[in-house]
Design a protein around this nucleic acid. Structure first.
Length: 572
DNA sequence: GCCGTTTTCGGCCCGACTGTTTTCAGTCG
């Protein structure tokens, strides 16, 4: 998958052109880069199909350059630009307050090429000599170099969302206690349910703004208050997550929420649409001349733009605006739309709770059914079951089913898919309701081998579901390179469902891959892979992935009633 | 360099903030 490579080259070209004060081209390159970065299809494939020009932001010139990168692995134009401005752009641009123009200036005047050069120039007070820069800039550079060295990347959604919820709950108490009708909501990529988030943005309205900002800066686990004003405050938590609070006027709450929710591309597209209709859209509202015609709620703004309300998970400028205009937005899978969790572990293998405890938790979550799928494996670390122990567990499940009302426990197992694609043929597996097949070892295989391996497992009459299909762990382990077209074809042909694993570290399939699967006509299943009751609540992250993939209820098999669900299984 | 319910040419998202400036350029989100 070369998308990341192509996108980063295009972005770097944009930066270098910016350094040379070239107008407009940088914007064009960045737009193309964003498209390629966020699309699900491998760019090589789009190229092979001769469809590069269909990509938004890609025209003749950029298409030709992309072709060159794919064919030769490099790009002459890019190399020439680098010759002209041989600087360590990536690290220099990471310094807060320094953009491409400043890097260009510093290179021209002082020959600054690297972070070390920059630090030295600042320490020797050579930066204040340059016109447009000054002593303040110099100080900022020094302090942000320090900060940049300590900062880290994006946090997992699963980590940030509970924190955001807790903070919002505390602040809502302040609003209620003040006896007013203020609103408050977490915005940003968190609200769009992206798998990782940069920081937490909270938008609020209140007649007592300072009460909110006061309480905000007294939250627990603050490492540092970065900023505190009347209507705006910013914190760094001890876990390095940054949280921003903005208090806005009532009549702007919807517009501000849209603005801070993003995505940037979605906002840009909306603003262009607004202009085309003779309006102006900003974070204060939708304006005709200087009169505000909408802004109190998001729906009001969308409506005045001639659009249906767009759920946050779809706001990525991937066709949602067009769909909203034609009243063709999908009716998204609801957060309470799943009726059963189909990958769960108990103490029988590597889980922490009993069958009954997991079933009770499932009942409390409102599920109709679950599947217990402890490891059926010889791998020692997971305390895998053998034939006899699985039979014992099946008896226990029968007894628990008799005891509990309102929840049905399916008998299942999670089996290893061997390097050659084979799975255990033990007879007991055929007596189960449901088998999840997953890869737990030998990850280093070629794309062809890995694809073949998964398809072999799908073709066996044992396996109903492929668990965490790419094996990725966000920020830790790269996904397996797979031929998704073949995989999706096999899924439809064999009625073996690919999983959206809802564990925040996995979210596998990803939103982009899930979208591809749905577009090619596959049905999916969303499971938590929980090893205790608490983890069963991760379902919302998996549903978030589904919604970002435009999934409707009919696309997800565990939204069916137990009876209908059983009918969708092969050999069922 | 890209793109079109104002266009195949002439435009290109918006506002706050900062630091450097006597009116603005650059950066950020």
């Amino acid at each position: 998958m070369k998308n990341q490579l192509v996108a980063s080259i295009l972005n770097e070209i944009a930066d270098m052109l910016d350094m040379q004060e070239v107008e407009f081209k940088p914007r064009a390159y960045r737009r193309a880069a964003r498209t390629i970065e966020s699309m699900a299809e491998p760019i090589e494939q789009v190229y092979a199909q001769g469809k590069l020009l269909d990509l938004p932001g890609v025209g003749e010139a950029i298409a030709k350059k992309i072709g060159e990168i794919i064919e030769t692995g490099s790009l002459e134009y890019y190399e020439e630009l680098k010759q002209k401005t041989p600087v360590d752009l990536e690290n220099l641009l990471a310094v807060e307050g320094i953009g491409p123009k400043t890097v260009g200036l510093l290179y021209k005047k002082l020959g600054v090429k690297s972070l070390e050069d920059l630090q030295r120039a600042a320490q020797e007070h050579r930066i204040r000599e340059i016109k447009r820069l000054g002593p303040k800039t110099e100080e900022n550079i020094l302090s942000s170099i320090e900060l940049a060295k300590r900062s880290r990347g994006r946090s997992l959604l699963g980590e940030a969302l509970p924190i955001a919820t807790e903070i919002c709950d505390r602040l809502k108490v302040v609003i209620r206690t003040a006896g007013e009708s203020g609103q408050l909501e977490a915005a940003g990529s968190l609200r769009r349910m992206k798998e990782t988030v940069g920081d937490i943005d909270i938008v609020a309205t209140s007649n007592h703004a300072s009460l909110l900002t006061d309480e905000f800066t007294r939250l627990p686990d603050i490492q540092k208050v970065l900023e505190k004003g009347e209507t705006k405050a910013s914190l760094l938590l001890t876990n390095h997550i940054q949280v921003d609070l903005r208090v806005v006027e009532d009549e702007s709450f919807g517009a501000a929420l849209m603005y801070f929710t993003g995505s940037k591309d979605h906002n840009i597209a909306l603003r262009k649409l607004a202009i085309s209709r003779g309006f102006k859209l900003n974070e204060y509202g939708l304006f005709k001349g200087d009169q505000q015609i909408a802004g109190r709620t998001e729906d009001e703004v969308y409506k005045k733009l001639g659009l249906d309300g767009i759920p946050p998970e779809l706001r990525e400028d991937r066709g949602e605006i067009n769909a909203a205009m034609k009243h063709q937005l999908p009716s998204l899978l609801a957060y309470d739309g799943v009726r059963g969790d189909l990958q769960l572990h108990t103490r029988w293998s590597d889980g922490q709770q009993t069958v009954e405890e997991m079933a009770q938790a499932a009942k409390n979550l409102g599920y109709e059914y679950i599947a217990i799928t402890d490891h059926y494996s010889r791998m020692p670390i997971v305390n895998g079951l053998n034939e006899q122990r699985l039979r014992d567990q099946m008896n226990e499940i029968d007894k628990t089913n008799e005891k509990l009302n309102g929840i049905h426990i399916l008998k299942g197992a999670e089996v290893d898919i061997a390097a050659d694609g084979s799975v255990s043929e033990d007879k007991v597996l055929r007596d189960l309701d449901l088998v999840v097949g997953s890869i737990h070892g030998t990850f280093k295989q070629t794309k062809k081998e890995m694809t073949r391996r998964l398809i072999s497992a799908m073709e066996s009459d044992i396996v109903h579901i492929i668990g965490h299909p790419t094996g990725r762990k966000i920020n830790e382990k790269a996904p397996s390179d797979l031929d998704f077209d073949e995989l999706f074809e096999a899924s439809k042909r064999t009625k073996t469902y690919l999983e959206i694993n809802a564990s925040p570290q996995r979210l596998d399939l990803s939103d982009a891959n899930a979208a591809l699967a749905l577009r090619s006509g596959c049905k999916l299943v969303i499971n938590t892979d929980a090893h205790n009751q608490e983890q069963m609540k991760n379902m919302r992250f998996g549903i978030g992935v589904g919604r970002r993939a435009w999934a409707e209820k009919k696309d997800i098999i565990n939204t069916h009633t137990l009876e209908d669900f059983k009918k969708t299984l092969k050999n069922g």
